[in-house]
Design a protein around this nucleic acid. Structure first.
Lengths: 302, 302
DNA sequence: AACAACCTGTGCAATAATGCACAGCATGAA
DNA sequence: TTCATGCTGTGCATTATTGCACAGGTTGTT
């Protein structure tokens, strides 16, 4: 008997999650026209309307919602099964060249270790450096980047977000006095100017005593007590040397992107590795994004 | 990130169930070459061998078994969801012409009633007759047949099996005497001769006093006490007028096929109806096939 | 040994699916 | 009011998938 195409349910899951054909298309890395046709085909196959149009956008019907929920559960089972079996046998071998900034690399080392334990046939070549701005073709298989405008020649997805609260050290707070306003502190700013707009708006007369052009240098400069600084929660929240003194501004964050070249994305060991990192970072997202700080301090006023 | 094609899991489920690419192909109504390619693609996508070849046939690896089991569970969830939403709204309407023999039609009337209650927009035209041997194109949308050689121009599947134990009536047993051997009874045989080989082998000198050419006529002839007869358990096991006196021979049964024309199989109301009947008969398979008799008598010797 | 009936694998033509490019609609900001 | 940015729908060319036909292997029966 003719059966429904289960892969249409994978598309439906994405539509339910993204809220639109266009959003689902981006998530799945296919075109919105494909999503549209697949949902039409699914409706025809089932003989039921899954969507109704409201002001040019589509919303799920009751049947659509039912099926989208089921598809979401199916997705969880598929993902779990996929992780269980992917590259499970000795066939998964070869080299993976990873390009990653050093701060994020440090945070992910335990995950890399776990991956290499699971897949002993893999050789992971990690190219760690300061902010990597050029991506010569073929010099890396997998790229982890902190950006809000990922290069269009690569494919992948945003797995988490760097949020940047303002941090100080307890020693600096004590030295300056607990009631000293932010404007009176010395500041360490990002060399690429990404927080300058924020400073102009909220601490216009700030004493900028230092600029650093890498995440690691930023962290070490603040650790040394040189000044206050916007640091990513990722790895800093769990470092006892730091104290948050002002919350992150959601308009000043960076996506953490997991990217590869389009023609590599079907390569088993690349897919396995990216899926593994995706799962690891998804599991740690609250920690990465600063929603599970280990020290809670009274925030200063501007 | 590139995702596995979930529809490959639907194929894998069938392979796990059928035990071969060829068997899965028949079950899914696609070619074995498609099954082969889809399983190769799935293995490539996951980077794991799901099959290994043993004497020209394929057996599942541990990873393959893991994934086949998961796929089977997914299939149950998909089937349940599909039944919940299929044709759920008022859109499912139109006519369905069903061709079915009268004995099976009587057994399925409660199911037809349930279907029409669920889908009030459907008009079911049931063509009930004695054994229908010709299938003029387009005179029926859905065909239920008792056969072991379904017409190749139609598509569908065997949903259950007619098994044919030997039945008597209590009155006939009393009239003939409880210890009378089978050979001394009068017999009612099928007009199409389908049980003649069995009779030649096991009751060669039988007194054949009656032949009937339809299932209904067979049932009514035995009910009238004319003689013993091979009747389908389906509907007879639950009829208090009858007693089994000899078990069914598994080499003398008929498949119950649910069939339609290839170009109708994607039509929503046809698919919904066939899937519904499939589910109903699958749920009743033990009863249909005689594994849940309501009266258990001591079987006679040959 | 020969044959029948099952199995899987693959080249090539046919068919189906997808992406691209375009069109039109809705909404929010300036 | 105008414009930008999102959305969905669709014709056509491109790409991927499928079916057909064939080949070869294994097993069981005669």
């Amino acid at each position: 008997m003719h059966s429904m195409n289960w892969d249409d349910l994978r598309i439906l899951r994405a539509v339910g999650h993204a809220g639109s054909y266009s959003g689902a298309a981006r998530q799945l890395e296919i075109t919105h026209s494909t999503v549209s046709r697949r949902m039409r085909a699914l409706e025809a196959s089932l003989g039921v309307a899954l969507f109704e149009q409201v002001s040019g956008s589509l919303v799920l019907t009751a049947a659509g919602e039912d099926l989208a929920v089921t598809s979401s559960r199916l997705g969880e089972e598929v993902d779990a099964a996929e992780l269980r079996v992917m590259g499970r046998d000795a066939e998964l071998k070869g080299s993976i060249k990873l390009s990653i900034v050093d701060a994020t690399a440090r945070n992910l080392m335990p995950s890399f270790e776990r991956f290499l334990t699971l897949y002993p046939g893999i050789e992971l070549e990690i190219e760690v450096g300061p902010n990597l701005t050029s991506l010569p073709r073929r010099e890396a298989d997998v790229i982890v980047r902190a950006t809000n405008s990922p290069p269009e020649i690569l494919v992948g997805r945003k797995v988490a977000t760097h949020n940047f609260p303002v941090y100080a050290t307890p020693a600096l707070l004590e030295k300056m006095g607990q009631e000293t306003p932010l404007a009176d502190f010395p500041w360490v700013l990002w060399g690429n100017g990404m927080m300058d707009t924020w400073m102009d708006r909220y601490v216009p007369q700030a004493r900028v005593v230092c600029r650093a052009n890498t995440a690691s240098a930023m962290v070490e400069a603040v650790r040394a007590g040189i000044g206050l600084g916007h640091l990513s929660c990722y790895g800093v929240d769990t470092d006892p040397d730091f104290v948050r003194i002002y919350p992150a501004d959601e308009n000043f964050n960076l996506g953490i992107w997991l990217l590869t070249h389009p023609d590599l994305r079907k390569t088993a060991r690349i897919r396995t590795f990216m899926k593994f990192l995706d799962a690891e970072m998804t599991a740690q997202r609250d920690t990465i994004e600063g929603r599970a700080p280990t020290r809670i301090e009274k925030y200063k006023d501007l």
